[in-house]
C-alpha cells in the first residue's frame, strides 16, 4: 500500500510538489500521469526515500517514511522495486551481475542467486543475454534488465518511472505485460508515465499531476 497525506516538497523555494494526497491500495496497479515537470519523478524520489518531504506523511509498504532512521531505510528499500527512467544499470557488470546485485546485497548464497536470476531472465525473455554488458543491449532490453533487477527481490511495492519512454510500441507492450504479470502476483505497482496509451482502455486508476499539484483521479 502507498499513501501520501498532504505531501509537499520544494527545491530552493520552488515548489515541486504541493499538498499531495493519494492512496494506492495493496495489490493495485495504478498510474501517475502529467506533462514533463509535473512532479512525477520528485514524487517517486520521495517514495523510494531518496529525498524527504518538507511536509506531510508518506506510508509505503507498511512503514511511515518520516519515522524511519538511517539504518532502517535500506531494509525498507528492499521491499520497494524501482524501475528508473535512466535505468541505472552498472555498465561494467554483465546483465547477470546487474540483476544478481539485488540478491547479493541481501546476502543470498550464490547457488540461490544463480537459480533466481535465471528464472527472472526467463520471465523477461533475456536468458540468452545474461553475459552481455548493458551498453550492448537495445533500450527495450536494458529496460527489461532494470525490471528484472527490481522484481527479483520480490518487493511488495513496485515503482516504475517512465518505463516505456523512448521504446517502440512492441517493446512497450512487452514491458506492460511484465508489469501486469508482477501485479497479478500481488505486488502493488505504481507507474509514472506521460504516455496516455499505457492506461487508456484499462480499468486502472490514474492520478493526474500538473505543476506539482494533484489535479484529479479517474478510473
Amino acid at each position: 500500500m502507498i499513501e501520501l497525506e498532504n505531501v509537499s516538497k520544494a527545491y530552493d523555494g520552488q515548489e515541486a510538489l504541493s499538498n499531495i494526497s493519494l492512496r494506492v491500495e495493496r495489490g493495485e496497479m495504478a498510474f501517475i500521469t502529467g506533462p514533463s515537470g509535473a512532479g512525477k519523478s520528485t514524487l517517486f524520489k520521495l517514495l523510494y526515500l531518496a529525498e524527504k518531504p518538507d511536509n506531510g506523511t508518506i506510508t509505503i509498504a507498511g512503514h511511515n517514511a518520516a519515522r524511519l532512521n538511517s539504518t532502517s531505510i535500506p531494509l525498507l528499500r528492499r521491499n520497494i522495486g524501482v524501475v528508473f527512467q535512466d535505468f541505472k544499470l552498472l555498465n561494467n557488470k554483465t546483465v547477470y551481475d546487474n540483476i544478481a546485485l539485488t540478491l547479493r546485497i541481501r546476502g543470498y548464497v550464490e547457488k540461490d542467486v544463480k537459480e533466481r536470476v535465471h528464472s527472472v531472465l526467463k520471465m523477461v525473455s533475456l536468458r540468452h543475454k545474461a553475459d552481455n554488458y548493458p551498453l550492448t543491449l537495445s533500450g527495450g532490453e536494458q529496460q527489461r534488465v532494470t525490471i528484472a533487477r527490481s522484481i527479483i527481490g520480490e518487493p511488495t511495492v513496485m515503482l516504475a518511472d517512465e518505463p516505456t519512454g523512448n521504446l517502440d510500441e512492441e517493446n512497450e507492450k512487452e514491458i506492460m505485460k511484465i508489469f501486469k504479470q508482477i501485479n497479478t502476483k500481488g505486488t502493488t505497482v505504481l507507474i509514472a508515465t506521460h504516455n496516455r496509451a499505457l492506461f487508456e482502455n484499462t480499468a486502472r486508476r490514474v492520478f493526474f499531476l500538473d505543476g506539482g499539484k494533484l489535479k484529479g483521479e479517474e478510473q
Binding site: A50, T71, L75, R77, R78, K88, L101, T102, I105
Partner: peptide, 16 residues
Amino acid sequence: REEIEVYKLLGATRWF
C-alpha cells in the same frame, strides 16, 4: 560513486 548510489537504491546497508 555511481555504483554506490545504485547499491543504496537497491537496499544496501552502510556496512555493505
